[in-house]
């Protein structure tokens, strides 16, 4: 049941019994307020911030050289003096490599999603807003890509184009365009059905103006939330491709690749071998939880 908001509906005739709250709260302000009350999302955000900043500023942190190998100090266990997290199979400092590895892994996770967001989002909004045969054309093409499981598609594209970071990025972008397009199309179709879009059309405004003013503000939120949840998938896929030897080439530090090269160490020092996996796990779960938290905070009928 609707509870009336505290306000006076008047034509200047009512005796004023209550005062209107002078400050008006916008949508994003209320979202921020809700996020502020959600500890899980806040913690995830903080962890991600820590991982991202340390990765970005890795060269300034005074870490050991992540490329410097040593045949003598291979596979030091965790907690060794000077090597907080031990060393890998070639004697490189694990801590330094994990931090530096974040640079590539995060880059490989975020970039394809961002590119796919730009392309898939535009296509989806165009399809959703135009409807009719434009929608049909775009969405049927997306369905073709959708028919392949994303892992398989990524592997086959990378395999066909050859190993390397650029090709991995390209393959992952192609993998993420269809799902983002589909989500964008469905939220846009929903928004297009609202009377305020009809009212805007009835005011004689052009399609681009209507999309910019009335559609974007209402669909960007849900699309971004969805894209955030894809970042974790992208990180895992990128790591997976590297693990299979289809992605980044050694000796670059990258979590997936590190997982691969530490494979042999699993019987010698299993904890050490699992560390890159732990990083992947933490990062992706943080992205996922944060995306859930954002969705909850934005999914409010004010």
């Amino acid at each position: 049941m609707a509870i009336q908001s505290p306000s006076l509906d008047i034509a200047g005739t009512a005796p004023l019994g209550a005062a209107l709250t002078p400050v008006s709260r916008g949508y994003w302000q209320s979202v921020r307020r809700r996020l502020g009350r959600d500890p899980v999302t806040l913690i995830c955000g903080a962890v991600l911030l820590l991982i991202v900043t340390s990765a970005v500023f890795a060269p300034l942190l005074g870490l050991a050289d992540p490329y410097k190998t040593s045949m003598i100090r291979r596979l030091y266990p965790l907690g060794s003096p000077n090597f907080l997290l031990g060393t890998d199979e070639l004697g490189r400092d694990m801590f330094s490599r994990l931090i530096y590895g974040g640079r590539l892994s995060l880059f490989m996770g975020v970039t394809p999603v961002a590119c796919a967001l730009l392309i898939g989002g535009s296509l989806g909004i165009a399809a959703g807003f135009s409807g009719g045969w434009v929608n049909m054309m775009i969405m049927r093409i997306m369905d073709v890509f959708y028919a392949f499981p994303s892992v398989l598609l990524a592997i086959s594209l990378s395999g066909a184009m050859g190993a390397g970071a650029e090709n991995t990025l390209l393959a992952l972008t192609l993998v993420f365009i269809p799902p983002i397009c589909r989500v964008s199309e469905s939220v846009t179709t929903q928004v297009r059905g609202f009377d305020f879009v009809d009212a805007a059309r009835a005011s004689g405004a052009g399609a681009l103006t209507i999309v910019r003013v009335h559609v974007l503000g209402n669909v960007l939120g849900p699309i971004l939330v969805y894209a955030t949840s894809l970042i974790s998938v992208a990180i895992i896929l990128a790591a997976g491709l590297s693990f299979l030897g289809l992605g980044v080439k050694p000796p670059e530090p990258e979590w997936g690749l590190m997982l691969n090269t530490l494979r042999q160490a699993i019987y010698v020092n299993p904890v050490l071998a699992a560390l890159p996996g732990v990083m992947i796990f933490i990062t992706s779960i943080c992205f996922n939880l944060m995306s859930d938290g954002l969705r909850a905070a934005m999914d409010v009928k004010a």
Binding site: D195, F196, V213, H214
Partner: peptide, 25 residues
């Protein structure tokens, strides 16, 4: 329109909603 809520864009202030059509023209 009938539905006073659905016919206003929830992300725009009243001034932005009212100015939309005149600005578009």
């Amino acid at each position: 329109f009938q539905d006073s809520y659905a016919s206003l864009n929830p992300r725009l202030t009243i001034a932005e909603t009212l100015a939309f059509a005149p600005k578009a023209h």
